Lab assay of single mutants.
Amino acid sequence: KITVTFNGEEKARRYYKKMQKHNLKVEIRVENNQWVVHVE
């Protein structure tokens, strides 16, 4: 499981979509004013 933190929504969403293309289970959320993407 990987957790990647971004300081911008745009970058986070781009990464999220990229990971989805690989058929990975991805989850995006905001934690402590940071955009966090969890990849299983």
Rank of each mutant, 00 (worst) to 15 (best):
I28F: 03
Y15E: 01
V36L: 06
V39Q: 02
N33H: 08
A12G: 02
I2R: 11
Q20A: 09
M19D: 01
Y15A: 02
W35K: 00
E40H: 11
Y16V: 09
V30N: 11
N32T: 03
Y16D: 00
E31A: 06
E40R: 07
E31K: 06
V39A: 03
I28L: 11
R13M: 13
I28T: 01
Q34K: 14
K11T: 13
G8W: 09
Q34A: 07
N7C: 14
V36Y: 06
L24I: 10
E40I: 13
Q34P: 00
R29K: 11
E9P: 08
W35L: 02
V26W: 02
R14D: 11
K11W: 11
A12K: 01
E27S: 13
K1L: 10
V30W: 12
K25A: 07
N33V: 03
E9A: 08
Q20E: 06
K1M: 12
L24K: 08
Y15F: 15
T5D: 02
N33P: 01
E31I: 13
Q34G: 05
N7R: 10
K11F: 12
R14E: 15
T5R: 14
R29L: 11
K1S: 13
G8F: 11
M19A: 06
Y16L: 10
H22N: 09
V4Y: 09
H22E: 08
K18N: 08
R29H: 13
Q34D: 03
L24V: 11
L24H: 09
K18H: 15
Q34I: 13
N33I: 03
E10P: 05
K18E: 13
Q20D: 03
K11D: 15
K11I: 11
I2A: 05
N7Y: 10
N23W: 09
R29T: 13
L24T: 05
N33D: 10
K18L: 14
T5L: 10
V37D: 00
R29I: 10
Q34F: 11
E9F: 14
N7V: 09
K21E: 13
E9G: 04
K17P: 01
T5G: 04
H22K: 14
F6A: 01
N7G: 07
R13F: 09
L24Q: 05
A12I: 04
W35G: 00
K25H: 11
H22I: 10
T5Y: 15
K21I: 08
E9Q: 06
N32Q: 06
R14H: 07
K1E: 07
L24A: 07
T5H: 10
R14I: 11
N32V: 05
E31G: 04
R14A: 14
Y15W: 07
Q20N: 05
N7M: 10
Q20L: 15
E10T: 09
F6W: 02
H38K: 08
I2Y: 15
I28W: 02
Q20G: 04
V30S: 07
V30C: 14
V4W: 05
K1Y: 14
V26R: 00
I2E: 04
V26N: 00
I2F: 15
W35S: 00
N32F: 06
E27F: 09
H22R: 14
V36D: 01
H22V: 06
E10Y: 10
W35D: 00
E10Q: 10
V4K: 10
F6E: 01
N7L: 09
H22A: 13
V26M: 03
W35P: 00
L24Y: 14
T3I: 12
A12R: 03
V37I: 05
K25L: 09
V30A: 08
K1R: 13
R13A: 03
N32P: 03
N7D: 15
E40P: 05
K18I: 12
E27L: 07
T3R: 10
K21T: 08
R29Q: 08
M19G: 02
N7W: 10
K17S: 08
E9D: 02
E31H: 08
V30I: 13
M19P: 00
V26H: 00
K21L: 12
Q34C: 12
T3W: 06
K21P: 02
T3V: 11
V39M: 05
N7Q: 11
R29Y: 14
V37F: 02
Y15I: 02
V30H: 14
N33Q: 08
V4Q: 05
V4N: 03
